[in-house]
């Protein structure tokens, strides 16, 4: 059984669904849930229920510096003799894992859609989602980040023994966070959202995004935008899905007035179910999605909001 560390991500004090998915990918190994933020004792039960043999309470404000967080992950790998270390390919996860891999001088497979911890193999997208590559890692530690939502949480009770980890490092590293700003973008993180509703050029204005916000609230969705909508100034770049924007993989993706350029598909084609609403029956998006409605988004979306 591979001793597998999982970097736990929390939201409002609770374990993120995406972290539970990563734990599901590690089942079959002995799971060490590494909690570097919030209150480890309050999430211990959940982590045990989803397979953590050990819940490691990492002391200190390590998440305040990405370099320190990476150093602590390296320390935890040595301290617990971990053979694998997995995390979510979220903004923070991708950053910390890349730093940790560079620090260890070990390989890392980023944004995997499938992993096999025992074989040290992983599948990931190449060429903007046009191909899937299987990579084999030849290293003492198997480091991977996993694309959010590709693995569903699955219960598998384990002991969940709580241990404290006082890291020796306290060096904040070479970069310093001097400011944190919140822009007008969506409230839910697009890359991790289970449902996404996206507006394309046909949304016509920034104000009209409120129509998508209303529908998103009913769906529990995050709101995205196509490149055309971002370039037209209707939405900030932080909301862009696709090439030069974010790669997402929700269980449900609803594209409203998006034509369906190759570059858009590059960012959302691994979604489980794709729905398109577009006035143009010949829009390319209809040839590559699951369900289509030909119609005016300003009629269809409010109706959807009303009926949900």
């Amino acid at each position: 059984m591979t001793r597998t560390g999982i970097l736990v991500e929390l939201e409002n004090g609770a374990v993120k669904e995406t972290t539970l998915g990563v734990m599901a990918a590690a089942q079959g190994g002995e799971i060490f849930a590494l909690v570097a933020e919030g209150d480890a004792s309050s999430v211990k039960e959940t982590l045990a229920q989803y397979g953590a043999a050990t819940v490691v309470d990492i002391k200190g404000d390590v998440m305040s510096s990405p370099d320190l967080a990476a150093q602590v992950l390296c320390d935890a790998v040595s301290a617990y003799e971990l053979g694998a270390l997995l995390g979510t390919a979220s903004s923070a996860g991708k950053d910390i894992f890349a730093r940790a891999a560079a620090l260890m001088g070990q390989p890392l497979v980023s944004d995997c859609v499938e992993v096999n911890v025992a074989d040290k193999t992983a599948k990931k997208s190449h060429f903007s989602g046009k191909t899937v590559a299987t990579l084999k890692v030849d290293a003492p530690v198997f480091l991977c980040t996993i694309r959010p939502n590709v693995y569903e949480a699955s219960e598998s009770a384990a002991a969940g023994e709580l241990v404290e980890f006082n890291c020796e490092s306290a060096d904040p590293g070479l970069i310093k966070i001097v400011e944190v700003k919140t822009d007008a973008g969506g409230k839910l993180d697009l890359t991790e959202a289970p449902v996404i509703i996206t507006g394309g050029r046909a949304i016509k204005s920034a104000d009209n995004f409120s129509m998508l916000d209303a529908c998103a609230e009913k769906l529990g969705a995050a709101v995205g935008a196509s490149r055309a909508a971002v370039d037209a100034g209707y939405a900030p770049h932080s909301m862009q899905v696709g090439q030069t924007g974010k790669t997402v993989s929700p269980r449900l993706y609803i594209a409203c007035g998006v034509s369906g350029a190759v570059q858009h598909f590059a960012g959302m084609k691994t979604s489980k179910v794709i729905v398109a609403i577009n006035e143009d029956k010949d829009a390319p998006i209809f040839s590559k999605c699951d369900y289509g409605i030909v119609g005016d988004i300003f009629e269809v979306v409010p109706k959807l909001t009303e009926k949900l």
Partner: peptide, 15 residues
């Protein structure tokens, strides 16, 4: 300036 998810941006200083 770096996007750190959920519409949040961090400003980081380095030498």
């Amino acid at each position: 300036t770096r996007e750190s998810g959920a519409g949040e941006k961090q400003v980081l200083e380095m030498a």
